[in-house]
Design a binder for these strands. Sequence first.
RNA 1: GGCGCCAUCGUCUAUCGGUUAGGACAGCCGCCUUUCACGUGGCAAAGACGGGUUCGAUUCCCGUUGGCGCUACCA
Length: 500
Amino acid sequence: MKVRTRVAPSPTGDPHVGTAYVALINYCFAKHHGGDFLLRIEDTDQARSTRESERAILDSLHWLGLSWDEGPDVGGPHGPYRQSERSAIYKRYVQQLLDQGDAFKCFCTPERLEEMRVAQRAAGLPPRYDGLCLSYSPEEIARREAAGEAYVVRMKVPDHGACIVEDERRGKIEFEWKTVDMQVLMKSDGLPTYHLANVVDDHLMEITHVMRGEEWISSAPKHVLLYQYFGWQMPKLIHLPLLRNPDKSKLSKRKNPTGILFYQAMGYLPEALLNFLGLLSNSLPEGQDEMMLLPDMVQRFSLEHIPLGGPVFDVAKLDWLNGRYIRERLDPDQFMQRVAAWGFAPDRLKRIASLSQTRVERLSDLGLLLSFFFAGRLPVAAEQLRAGKMSDLEVRQALALAMWDLDALRAWNVAGIEMVLKRVSELLGKKFRDVARPFYVAITGSPTSVPLFDAMDLLGRDMVRERLRTALDALGAPSKKEQDEWKKLLAATDKEDEAS
RNA sequence: GGCGCCAUCGUCUAUCGGUUAGGACAGCCGCCUUUCACGUGGCAAAGACGGGUUCGAUUCCCGUUGGCGCUACCA
């Protein structure tokens, strides 16, 4: 049987290096065995999924040099490859489960479920649906449905016995059924949850090996059970370790840059980044050169060499590798072209130039004025950040508030950025002009520069987050207590927004 | 709290019962060099702990500890 793997990102934010890591492993495994690698978009979360995010994810993976045999952009015989376009399919299978008696409608309110879980936790029990709606008669269910009560569909899960999950890398993993929750398969909006969609799609798309992050191990029993209910052959499961921050916690943008776009903006070469991820995804035999292109990685790939412990994303090693690519794999012409493509693409240059035109008297003023567009993290002078009309506390608050709000921003553009910063100044009860100053310093390195919102837009969300973080750290990162207090400020106005 | 995964230098890792526990990044010290960088030579650095199994455990088993994940009508 032909090996078929997939990567199934959820388009709910900026492209993440973890997605690239999982994609690379799936790609290498499939290609090593002469198989197919597909890309599927898991956009069943209507509230958070966006087309912009999807576009950015595909672009980023392509930028890294990854390609797929089937996917939303290239099509294929098992489409559509976007789950939001497969609703009819899931409905059919949910109905099958309902008809077979393997799933049931649940009318419980979120409040009741919440109470139930609180009680279970207090009693030291595993959180698990208590089966109230399972006791309803068909008439009762029909009555509620007719009355227009919202419901979800849950899968039935046995009360006794255990489930053995077979992981190709870790061996057998045992779960007692009583610790497995009766997962929601279909939400009240009629869309499936990950659990159902993923099983149905993997089967229909003839996926042979599911290689996904280890955060899925605990829900694997549900998937095993669904395959049983449907009578389908289970694909092989391989759970991949999660990339870590230097402090060993799961890699998160709160602590570290996680965006592929950040590494792009920092001037890492795609082949170096991919090579680096390859080093973390498959340990190579002793003495082998660690510099390798995608075809080498495919050729050398083996399941047994996928690490189990979560590797720290060690930027220092990435730096070394990237340096090697720059000086060993590029001749002067190629280097020049890379530099041009990185920071001097015509439309980027055009925008940058237009921002500066009224602010220079000689062209030679440009270098210092615009250098921050061609830099990574800026060395921030704490005195500069403090020099305005705001107190230290206010500056720190402003930076922290902006970071949080900027992360929550749907689309990264001038209007959104302006909205966030204006809101921060209102929250603090300060003139925008005074609030703006530390941002100029943090983002452009100087209190006077080209228009801030455009600069931030051009720099990108990841780079902005890093510079704000650098600035905030220079003044003292907020304590846990301060964070909680400051977040209340945001929450309070969020409620007002909803009310109005 | 419950359930699960993981555990070799600071970091990424090799070792598939017997090794002076190897390599790479970072660090430190030299060499090269008009500075720096590159390159190059070297140094330092690890089997979490406690029990077993075995002639012999880093390696196999159990426990402890620690890290991590999941615990949603998110994925």
